[in-house]
Every structure is written in structure tokens, then in C-alpha cells.
């Protein structure tokens, strides 16, 4: 099982690197799907089959599809790729890269400084997760419901297409 974990991890990291270096949005999304799938395998190996499935359905499925929908709606053409290339110049990445590596080094230092510990090999089944969700975490579930509801309402409101889009304070006069 360990070898699967290492392979999936490697695939996830490589795919993510590919995601962040693409100029074309759709290519990036395809690599993202690969990355999510690899992470799903990692989850399965770590003993969370239910989460692995959710990862595939919601991340690789719903969220990526949503992004692709939006890209289609925006109707981006070839020039956006050129634009992306122009923005993505070599010089600009140095500073963020340095900062991010400092952060990474610090995190790794913290992670490796403790006592090494093995992971348990027991699967945690969906039933246990469900019992926990509707047991001690029921309040969190309710709040998640409210969050999703407001997400839907917000998305609907923001995504509405008006003929003339100006802020209501700036509108001249409406009949």
C-alpha cells in the first residue's frame, strides 16, 4: 500500500506543478482533475474511502465542471493565452517563490522535528463518519446548510446579467 501512496503523492505534486505553470486555462483544469484524482487515491490509501469518493465527485466533478462552465461563458479565445504568457513573466515569480519556500521549509521543519508516528491501517467507514456528522457535529452540518444556501443565493444574485451594469448608487434614474 505504501508504494501506492508514494506514487499517488508524486502524481499529485507533479500534476499541481503542471496546473500552476499552464498558460491555457483548460489545460490547467485537466491537470487539476489529475491532481484531485491522485489525492483521492491518497485518501483511499489513508483509510478514508468515503472521502476519496467525495473528492472525485465534488472536487474533480462539480467544482472543475463549474470552472469549465464559466470559462465557456466567458468565451475566452487564443489571445487570452498570449495575455497569460505576457503576465507570467519569469521575473515576477522570484519573490513569491522565495517567500513560499521559506514557508515550506519552516513547515517541513516543524513536521519533521517531532517523534515519527505511523498511521493506522484501519478503514474508517462512511457509517462512522455519518454517525459522527449527525452526532456531535450536527450543529456544523446545520451551519454548512446555511452556508450553501447563502452561497446559492449569492451566486444567483451576483451572476444575474443586467442590461446595464452599474452600482445602484450610481444609477442615473430608473423608471
Amino acid at each position: 500500500m505504501a508504494i501506492i501512496f508514494y506514487m499517488a503523492s508524486a502524481i499529485a505534486v507533479i500534476a499541481t506543478v503542471m496546473v500552476i505553470t499552464r498558460h491555457n486555462l483548460v489545460h490547467a483544469l485537466l491537470y487539476l482533475v489529475v491532481s484531485f484524482l491522485a489525492v483521492a487515491i491518497v485518501f483511499y490509501v489513508l483509510g478514508a474511502p468515503f472521502i476519496a469518493v467525495l473528492e472525485i465527485i465534488i472536487y474533480a466533478g462539480a467544482i472543475v465542471v463549474l470552472l469549465i462552465f464559466v470559462i465557456m461563458m466567458l468565451n475566452l479565445r487564443q489571445e487570452s493565452v498570449a495575455q497569460e504568457k505576457q503576465w507570467f513573466s519569469g521575473k515576477i515569480i522570484i519573490g513569491p517563490l522565495i517567500l513560499a519556500s521559506i514557508l515550506l521549509v519552516e513547515m517541513l521543519y516543524i513536521l519533521t522535528s517531532g517523534e515519527p508516528a505511523g498511521l493506522s491501517e484501519n478503514m474508517i467507514e462512511a457509517k462512522a463518519v455519518g454517525m459522527s456528522l449527525y452526532g456531535p457535529y450536527v450543529l456544523g452540518v446545520e451551519l454548512s446548510g446555511i452556508l450553501l444556501m447563502s452561497g446559492i443565493v449569492g451566486a444567483y444574485h451576483l451572476g444575474r446579467q443586467k442590461k446595464k451594469v452599474t452600482h445602484r448608487f450610481l444609477e442615473k434614474k430608473e423608471e
Binding site: P96, L99, A100, L103, E106, I110
Partner: peptide, 16 residues
């Protein structure tokens, strides 16, 4: 975002 990152670095450094 850079500000956020620098803040995170500072806090981690302090923690270490």
C-alpha cells in the same frame, strides 16, 4: 496576499 504570507512566516518563525 504577500502581506498575509509574510505574516504567516513571521508567526511560524516565532513558533520555531
Amino acid at each position: 496576499l504577500i502581506g498575509v504570507v509574510i505574516g504567516a512566516i513571521l508567526i511560524l518563525t516565532l513558533g520555531i
